[in-house]
Design a binder for these strands. Structure first.
Length: 424
RNA sequence: GGAGAGAUGGCUGAGUGGUCGAAAGCGGCACCCUGCUAAGGUGUUAUAUCCUUUAUGGGUAUCGAGGGUUCGAAUCCCUCUCUCUCCGCCA
C-alpha cells in the first residue's frame, strides 16, 4: 500500500510513476485525493465536536449540572455519530481504492509493457550447455522421470487432479537433497532458518499484497479467513510485525522451506506437462527486513544468494531485470532468475527476487527503531526464491541427462546428500 | 469439543463510572554526583491521526477487536478473537 500522505502531497508525481506500469491509475489517484480531502474536513469537524463534548462532560460536578448539559451533549452526539459514520465510509472507500494500487517502480527500472521488454543482466555461463551439440535432442524432465519411474503424473491426477505430481524413490530423494542443500547454503550465509505455518490469515495476505486483488490465485479454506500459503514470503514477511525491531537486529535475513499452493487460475493450457506449473510445489524462500537505505544493497545480496545455488549446481541461467509492466504488484524492483531447459531450448523462471520497499511494511506495520530515542520507522521488505524446488529438480534432470542413454548424473554439489551419483 | 480464568504502556503490574494516556516497580534515555567501577540523585520515557507551525504548540482517537449503555467508559452490558488451566479426543 502506498503512503496516503505522499499521494496527497505529490499526486502528479505518483500518477506519472505509476503510469509506467501497464495500467494507468490516474483516476484512482484523483479519486483518492478528493476523498481524502473530504474525509479530513469531516474528521476535523467531528474532532472539534468531540472536543466540545469532552469539555462539557468534564465540567460536570454534580447531578444537577449534568441535567443542564444533557440536551446539548445529546445533540452534539447525534452530529458526531453521523460525521463518524460518514468518515468511516470514506475511509473504507479510500482503502478499497488504495489496496488495488501497486507499488511504485524505482527510478532505474526499464519502462516496458510486458516480459519482452525485460532486460537481461547477465548469462551464466555465457552459452548454455546444449545437450546433443546444440540441437534440441534433449528429452524433457517428465519423459526422463517417468521412464525412470522417479516421478508420476498420472496417478497423481487421479489422487488430486491436474497439476499435481508425486516423486518416487530416487526422485523423492533428489527433491529432499535439493531442499537440504538450499537450506544449508542459506544457513551458511547467515540466514535464520524458519519453519512457518502453511495456513495463513487473510489479514497477512492483505499485508503482503496477495489480497484483495489476487484472491482467485489462492486456496481459501472454507468458512474461515484462512488460506494456504502461495509462498513462504507471506508468513516470513508478516512474522515480525508485532513490535518494532531494534536497529541492531537489522538486517534480518530469513530462509524457509515450505510447500506452496496456487490455484493457477487463468493459466489454463499453459505448461500443462511436467513440473513447471503445479498447484503444490516446494520452495526455499529468502526474506530480508532492512533499513530503507540498505534495501538496494540487500536486494543485490539476495539475488546473489539465489544465483549461488544455480552456480553450485552448475545450471545455466540468466538474470533478468523486469520492466515496469512485468513486475509483481508489491515490487518496486524485481530480478528474475531463469534457468535453462534444454528440452524447451528456453530459459524459464526459477526465482523471482523483489524489493518491495515499504509497500508491505506499511500495511503490516513492520517497523524498526534507529536508536533508543527515535520513533519507529517503516522498514523495507525483500523476498526471493532460492529456489523453486520442483523447477530445480526438472532443470537438474534435463541439464544432466546422458546424451547416449536414459538417465542423468547427480550434480557435484548434491552428492554428499545422496547415496547414488547417477539415476539410470 | 466441554468447563473456568484472563487480555492494561518496552516488561511486571495497580486501577470497577469523571481529577486516567493511565499508579508503582523494572528497563531505556538525559543530566548530576563520583579518581575509576559499583552504588546513588533528579528528570524524562506510547502510538496513530489532523490542525497550526514545521523548533514548539493544540485537538482527536487508542487500556485485545467490534458494537451498546451514559452528560461522561480501562472500569458497566453484548458479540468476537486470542492466551492460560482442567477435562475429553488426537498425530
Amino acid at each position: 500500500m502506498l503512503d496516503l500522505k505522499v499521494i496527497r502531497q505529490n499526486p502528479e508525481e505518483i500518477k506519472t510513476k505509476l503510469a509506467k506500469r501497464n495500467n494507468t491509475f490516474a483516476a484512482s489517484i484523483y479519486e483518492i485525493v478528493e476523498i481524502d480531502k473530504q474525509k479530513r474536513e469531516i474528521q476535523q469537524k467531528a474532532d472539534e465536536l468531540k472536543s466540545r463534548r469532552n469539555t462539557l462532560s468534564k465540567s460536570v460536578k454534580s447531578q444537577e449540572e449534568a441535567e443542564t448539559i444533557k440536551l446539548e451533549v445529546k445533540a452534539i452526539n447525534e452530529e458526531i455519530n453521523s460525521l463518524d459514520a460518514l468518515s468511516t465510509s470514506l475511509d473504507q472507500k479510500l482503502e478499497d481504492i488504495t489496496l488495488y494500487i501497486p507499488n511504485i517502480p524505482l527510478d532505474d527500472i526499464p519502462v516496458g509493457k510486458d516480459e519482452t521488454e525485460n532486460k537481461v543482466i547477465k548469462h551464466y555461463p555465457l552459452t548454455p550447455l546444449k545437450v546433443g551439440a546444440g540441437k534440441i535432442t534433449a528429452k524433457s524432465h517428465w519423459e526422463i522421470g517417468e521412464a525412470l519411474g522417479i516421478i508420476d503424473f498420472e496417478n497423481s491426477s487421479r489422487l488430486s487432479g491436474t497439476r499435481f505430481s508425486t516423486f518416487i524413490g530416487q526422485g523423492a530423494k533428489l527433491q529432499r537433497a535439493l531442499i537440504q542443500f538450499m537450506l544449508d547454503e542459506a544457513s551458511a550465509n547467515g540466514y535464520t532458518e524458519i519453519a512457518p505455518p502453511a495456513i495463513i490469515n487473510g489479514e497477512i495476505l492483505r499485508g503482503t499484497g496477495q489480497l484483495p486483488k489476487f484472491a482467485e490465485d489462492l486456496y481459501h479454506l472454507e468458512n474461515t479467513d484462512q488460506y494456504l500459503i502461495p509462498t513462504a514470503e507471506v508468513p516470513l514477511t508478516g512474522f515480525y510485525a508485532a513490535k518494532p525491531l531494534n536497529h541492531d537486529e537489522l538486517p534480518k535475513r530469513l530462509c524457509a522451506y515450505t510447500p506452496c499452493f496456487r490455484s493457477e487460475a487463468g493459466a489454463a493450457g499453459r505448461d500443462t506437462r511436467g513440473l513447471i506449473r503445479q498447484h503444490q510445489f516446494d520452495k526455499i524462500e529468502l526474506v530480508h527486513l532492512c533499513k530503507p537505505e540498505e534495501s538496494e544493497a540487500e536486494h543485490e545480496r539476495l539475488v546473489s544468494q539465489a544465483e549461488s545455488i544455480l552456480e553450485k549446481l552448475e545450471l545455466p541461467y540468466r538474470r533478468v531485470l523486469l520492466c515496469t509492466g512485468d513486475m509483481g504488484f508489491s515490487a518496486a524492483k524485481c530480478y528474475d532468475l531463469e534457468v535453462w531447459f534444454p528440452s524447451q531450448g528456453a530459459y524459464r523462471e526459477i526465482s523471482s527476487c523483489s524489493n518491495c520497499t515499504d509497500f508491505q511494511a506499511r500495511r503490516l506495520g513492520l517497523k524498526f527503531k534507529r536508536d533508543a530515542k527515535s520513533k519507529p520507522e517503516l522498514l523495507h521488505t525483500l523476498n526471493g526464491s532460492s529456489l523453486a524446488v520442483g523447477r530445480t529438480w526438472a532443470a537438474v534432470v534435463e541439464n544432466y541427462q546422458f546424451a547416449d542413454k536414459l538417465g542423468f548424473r547427480i550434480p557435484e554439489a548434491l552428492k554428499k546428500y545422496l547415496s547414488f551419483d547417477e539415476v539410470v
